[in-house]
Design a protein around this nucleic acid. Structure first.
Length: 570
RNA sequence: UCGCGGGUAGUUCAACUGGCAGAACACCAGACUUUGGAUCUGGGGGUUGCAGGUUCGAGCCCUGCCCCGCGAACCA
């Protein structure tokens, strides 16, 4: 058995730089003590009743990464025990998202429903041993008898039926002799337990609902607690990782497994904190509300925190993986700054994306001393971070589009771009000096007239003089016109829905801003669907995965000028 | 009300068995630069929730209190 381990112990006297989180610490301890025969097996067990979001990415990365680090395996298992909410569409989207994130499951997709026979057989054993009983009461009564926090529970009048009677009733439940909801199978544990989940939890309910995979074969379905640990055991899972809200279930998880008399060590559940992000909401119900009320264009809208939304937005899977690894695992409820995720996206895209020029809010720049009708091809670097990305040729003429924001009618403090008399460099091109800035009645810049220095071709001059600013441009005659979408936070509230607030009231009306007349350099007409590029000085953008003629702003570049403006406006 | 979990920099996490409270992101400054990007260097930032106790020494151990999260589905 191979056991890979991340380096954990720092040399004496040096600070430990590779601290291990509490989950990995447990796995290491188990491996060293020989528990599970040194084996490590995890799983990602989603219920196929919705789309995966960034929160699930934490669970996926954690389970797969830990398995890989310790030479173990990790499967994808659909926790499909509730036929009322589950659909094939979700199974397929989950599989696609997993592949997109870059993980390969250790085998085919597994289904809890494939174990229904074994899980039921174990239920009969439970009944035979007197550890479970059939209760004829309705859900409301059972719930009322459960008691409350600090209040004792009341035992069901059916609690002491004989094993023979219970077995007979359970078999008739399975055979479909009773209507939906008429009876349930309950574990016989302790109605006085402080842990509510130990007050005789329901194990099986009658539900005549067509199941996506088992069809109408079953009319009774196991509850999560009687299916999850059992599925883990059947598969040979060693470390069953889940989120904090299942902490109270751990005692029941253990109890259920103890009843099985397994010939090997039981899987063990460990809980960690789920991922929360500022300005983001992960509740399935509210996400569905956004879609159904039309606040976004479906589940893969780039503003959605779904993996399909983030994919369309242009998030590289590698960035998500690095982010999850960085935030680590803890039991502390945590709210991560969305900017942290974005910084990982920038880091990855900076390394990998091609640089291109695009003007989102164009104004005309006319070079008054440019030779009439002349056109030159300039060589531009594709990615300064990666010389192997090479160069490309871009056409340059006397009429260009530049960003409205790069021109002011008059100088402003700390503003280094174009204003009358100031010289700037056109990226990969020439030095130009603004002579005249035309504005409309509102003072908005409409056009700028410049002169250029013919000696500055390529961006340097023989006299070596410096300019404070380099701006991007696109030749007017060659520009490709496209729609570019800029995205801002979907919510204005850093914790949408917190403290009883209505998240829908903090919806940001400017969460999506379309720039329909953006002027792009010709190379951007040839992008592949989903391709990530950097629009120089603006940010990272992704061609839409379905329609590569529109672009989405994945994330902006760090913007010092924006910081200066923010500071001075305060 | 009861149970479980948690509380260390603005945020998220470290701090091995009780031994000088650190890192990342963010922010600020400088260097460099054909992206106000990237990169590099430095800086500000802390009553370790509060109070007491044990100890030569407490983020860590003990007691009490405070605050936050989760928990009484025939959901997962």
């Amino acid at each position: 058995m191979v056991t890979q381990r991340r380096p954990q112990i720092a040399r004496d006297g040096e600070p430990s730089t590779s601290a291990v989180d509490f989950v990995r610490a447990k796995v290491i301890a188990d491996t060293e003590s020989g528990k599970f025969g040194g084996r490590v097996q995890t799983r990602f067990p989603p219920e196929p009743n919705g789309y995966l979001h960034i929160g699930h990415a934490k669970a996926i990365c954690t389970n797969f990464a830990i398995a890989a680090e310790f030479g173990g395996t990790c499967n994808l298992r659909m926790d499909d025990t509730n036929p009322e909410t589950e659909e094939k569409e979700f199974v397929e989207s989950i599989e696609a998202d997993l592949a997109w994130l870059g993980f390969t499951r250790s085998g085919p997709t597994l289904y809890a429903s494939d174990y229904f026979g074994q899980i039921y057989a174990w239920a009969e054993d439970l009944v035979t041993k007197g550890q479970a009983y059939v209760d004829d009461q309705d859900a409301e009564t059972i719930s009322a008898q459960r008691g409350g926090f600090g209040q004792p529970g009341v035992e069901s009048p059916y609690r002491n039926r004989t094993p023979e009677e219970n077995l007979d009733l359970l078999r008739r439940m399975k055979a479909g002799e009773f209507p939906d909801g008429a009876r349930v199978l309950r574990a016989k544990i302790d109605m006085q337990a402080e842990n509510m989940w130990l007050r005789d939890p329901v194990l099986y309910r009658i539900r005549r609902t067509h199941h996506v995979r088992t069809g109408d074969e079953w009319v009774i379905y196991p509850m999560y607690d009687w299916a999850h640990g059992q599925s883990d055991a059947i598969e040979g899972v060693t470390h069953s990782l889940c989120t904090l809200e299942f902490s109270d279930h751990r005692a029941l998880y253990d109890w259920c497994l103890e009843q099985l008399d397994l010939p090997f060590e039981k899987p063990e559940q460990t809980e960690f904190a789920r991922l929360n992000l500022t300005y983001t909401m992960m509740s399935k119900r509210l996400l569905r509300g956004l879609v159904e009320e039309g606040h976004v264009d479906g589940w893969s809208d780039p503003r959605m925190p779904t993996l399909q939304g983030l994919r369309r937005l242009g998030y590289p899977p590698a960035a998500i993986r690095a982010f999850v690894e960085h935030i680590g695992l803890a039991r502390t409820n945590s709210l991560h700054d969305i900017e942290l995720l974005e910084s990982f996206v920038r880091t990855e895209l900076n390394r990998t994306s091609l640089r291109r020029m695009a003007v989102l809010d164009p104004v005309k720049l006319v070079i008054t001393n440019w030779p009439e009708g002349e056109q030159v091809m300039l060589e531009a670097v594709n990615n300064p971070e990666d010389p192997s990305a090479g160069t490309r040729l871009v056409p340059f003429t006397g009429e260009l589009w530049i960003e409205r924001d790069d021109v002011k009618p008059a100088p402003e403090p700390k503003y280094y771009r174009l204003f009358p008399g100031n010289e700037v460099r056109l990226r990969a091109g020439f030095y130009v000096t603004a002579q005249e800035v035309l504005t409309d009645g509102d003072g908005r810049v409409t056009e700028v007239h410049c002169t250029y220095d013919p000696e500055s071709a390529g961006g340097t001059t023989p006299d070596g003089r410096k300019v404070k600013s380099t701006i991007h441009w696109v030749s007017a005659a060659h520009a490709v016109e496209r729609t570019v979408y800029l995205y801002n936070r979907l919510f204005t509230d850093p914790s949408p829905g917190a403290d009883g607030r209505d998240p829908m009231e903090s919806l940001n009306p400017e969460s999506r801003v379309a720039m329909p007349g953006a002027k792009l350099e010709g190379a951007l007409a040839d992008v592949t669907p989903g391709q990530a590029v950097q629009f120089e000085r603006l940010g990272y953008f992704a061609a839409d995965v379905d329609d590569p003629s529109v672009f989405h702003r994945t994330v902006g570049l760090r913007d010092e000028w924006a910081n200066i403006q923010k500071r001075t406006s305060r």
